[in-house]
Write a protein that binds this DNA or RNA. Structure first.
Length: 173
DNA sequence: TTAGTGATATCC
DNA sequence: GATATCACTAAA
């Protein structure tokens, strides 16, 4: 069966819809030497809106967060703690900052491990996630059971945003 | 629990 | 220019 490659339309929806649907999809990455890596997405987190204190965009529109306000289907790569690349996909309407963090793969737990495995770095920032043959996301029809949980690593965001359940995890069979 | 690491934002 | 902060990981 042919896997369906997700198009821009998939991402051009509200993050509340896209984030849970992204769980169970397969992220594919073609290396320079032609090797294709595939990893099923096991966990995502939604960062949505300027009011969301956990979202980078809440600090205002800056050169870095400009991407979040921009077109959907764009990869937002962010260097955290000087050594870890975190990968997000932009969703939703323009001027409405929404990003979905790919928090873990099926065999790679941890957002930085995922990017390390996929060899994603800052050079991918601002690139489209579809319409190219370097990095894309496939749907093979797999639909995992989901559970939700509060997001991780945003203690600074305040009680409300810290506890909101915008983390979507594939429930292990 | 702590160190390591560097881009970004914010304050001079 | 100088800090302070940070969507993390590994080692202990």
């Amino acid at each position: 069966m042919m896997n369906r490659i997700l198009t821009e339309e998939f991402f051009h929806r509200d993050g509340m819809e896209v984030a849970p649907e992204l769980v169970g999809k397969i992220i594919a990455r073609k290396l320079d030497d032609g090797t294709v890596l595939r990893e099923r997405i096991a966990e995502t987190e939604l960062y949505r809106g300027e009011e969301d204190k956990g979202c980078h965009a809440s600090k205002g529109r800056t050169p870095r967060t400009e991407l979040l306000f921009g077109e959907s289907g764009i990869i937002y790569v962010y260097l955290c703690y000087g050594m870890h690349w975190l990968m997000n996909v932009i969703t939703g309407e323009k001027d409405q900052p929404q990003g979905i963090l790919l928090r873990a793969g099926e065999t790679k737990n941890g957002p930085a491990k995922l990017t390390k495995y996929l060899q994603i770095d800052g050079s991918f920032n601002g690139r489209p996630i579809c319409g190219n043959d370097t990095v894309w996301i496939e749907d093979d029809g797999y639909r995992p059971k989901l559970r939700t949980a509060p997001r991780v690593g945003i203690d600074y965001a305040g009680d409300y945003w810290k506890n909101i359940e915008w983390r979507f995890i594939a429930d292990g069979e």
